[in-house]
Simulated scan of single mutants.
Amino acid sequence: MAFPSALFIFVLPLFLVFSPTLSTNSEGNALHALRSRLFDPKNVLQSWDPTLVNPCTWFHVTCDSNNHVVRLDLGNSNISGSLGRELGELKHLQYLELYRNNIIGKIPKELGNLESLISMDLYGNKFEGKIPKSFAKLKSLRFLRLNDNKLTGSIPRELTKLSNLKVFDVSNNDLCGTIPVDGPFGSFPMESYANNKLKGPELKGLVPYDFGC
């Protein structure tokens, strides 16, 4: 009568090891949630197996020595769909490359939680809505390219606090209002703002007026 109990004790650890619901970490869960939102006609996400211990062996994902996801490279992958708040769970992410796809919808404000981010390339998609003010929390950000989308509203003044920002491009959108001049915005060329409804740089020392925004 003791044999079934012994067998159960032996089998239970094996179940814990191989159970798919228990083997994926939070970053893997976040990326798999992203995959569920995307249409992937070229199967570039085929290797994204949620039963693995972590996503570091997945194609287009780069991890550091501690198995934290630091880079997501899905630029020019012919994917479509939308982004969700789960991307904000990738706390160690440094490079977010989603350029030249067909991604629609709003840019999630939760991307502002990616405080290690150095580069965010979302250009060449079909994003709409406003640029999230939460991006002001991205103190390490150097490259922010949002050009060639359908973004509306004004450029958030909160972004003038991004002292490390070297490249900023919002050309070919539907933005309105005036162009900030404080912080790093005094050094960006006018080409960064081309083909919008922007009314030109604001005057230093005056409260900005967002025309029609």
Rank of each mutant, 00 (worst) to 15 (best):
Y95M: 03
N101D: 12
G105D: 10
L111S: 07
K109I: 11
L96Y: 02
K130Y: 14
E110H: 13
G124C: 09
D121I: 06
I107T: 09
K126C: 08
E115A: 06
L122A: 05
M120K: 00
L122D: 04
N113E: 14
L122S: 02
K91I: 06
F127A: 02
R100D: 15
E128D: 10
G124R: 03
F127G: 03
F127P: 00
S119K: 07
E97M: 12
G112P: 08
K106E: 12
M120N: 01
L98R: 04
S116I: 01
L98H: 05
N102Q: 15
P108D: 12
L114E: 04
I103V: 15
I131A: 08
E110N: 12
K109N: 14
I131K: 04
I131L: 11
E128S: 14
K109Q: 15
Y95Q: 08
L117S: 03
R100G: 05
L122V: 05
I104E: 14
K130M: 14
K106P: 09
L114I: 06
S119G: 07
N102T: 13
E128K: 08
K91C: 00
N101S: 12
F127L: 05
L96R: 01
E115P: 00
H92E: 04
I131G: 02
K109E: 15
S119T: 12
K106W: 11
G129T: 08
L111H: 04
G129Y: 10
